[in-house]
Amino acid sequence: MNKYLGTILNSARLTSNVFKLVVSVPELTENVTPGQFCQIRIATELSHDPLLRRPISVADYDPTRQKLTFIIRESGRGTKFLARLVPGQQIDLFGPLGTGFPVHRLVKGDRALLIAGGIGAPPLYYLARQLHANGVECATILGFRSHSESFLIDEFSQFGPVRVVTDDGTLGSCGNVCTEITAWTSEGLDWTHGFACGPLPMLQALQAQLAGDGRPVWVSLEKRMACGLGACAACTCRPANPNSTASGPRLVCKDGPVFLLGEVELGE
């Protein structure tokens, strides 16, 4: 990881409150693993407020053109600042940070199930693209609150079948990602490895549904953090099994954000 200067190439709305930033980072030559994130600086030389960087997962990376894509939900002061960036403006990126998805654990012929809830979809998009390129079959479930909040559906469809589920039934089936797993499974869905990113209640429900399943499922977690580097110990989570060899505190920023489902306690 390092600190990089990036230039905004494109900023586009995907929904009323989700936007995509494409950033050119000419000096970035290190590998970026799906699931890793960057700490994007908000504070400027002229202003200390908002102060802290915002950890944003990488939604795509083009290593030949050194282009990073971030898909961000506008939800607070920091992300509102990012939403106002326009092409040509420069941003300070610190990354790539954290431990991403174990892309190379899967080989040609493996079947991945990607499960995304809302703004959890972007890191899974970059993952799907890499898995697909490696000959891994990808099936995707995208859960949204409503049709108006849906995004990335066509993009995921390039890599395999996609099922959409909404809380209000305005797009795809009515329900949530868990009911969709059940429905699709009864229609013959078959997978070997699972990957999920979404709100905490979704991940908790998934954990309950898949308890004892045996197939590995990796989840990407989110937690309030400051440094993003493993130094400040803000984003600690507890290992689910206190007797495991790595029974010390685990940090979302460094040991994660991707963990094997069941490896750590899922809580605020």
């Binding site: 407020d49 102060l51 802290l52 309030r224 400051a226 110990a233 600690t236 989570c237």
Partner: peptide, 22 residues
């Protein structure tokens, strides 16, 4: 172990932390 999370919160021109000496 320190305190439960969230352990940090951004505030105007600053931040609060309650790591709890982990």
């Amino acid at each position: 172990w320190g305190n439960p999370t969230p352990r940090v919160a951004e505030t105007p021109g600053g931040m609060l932390n309650a790591i709890g000496l982990q």
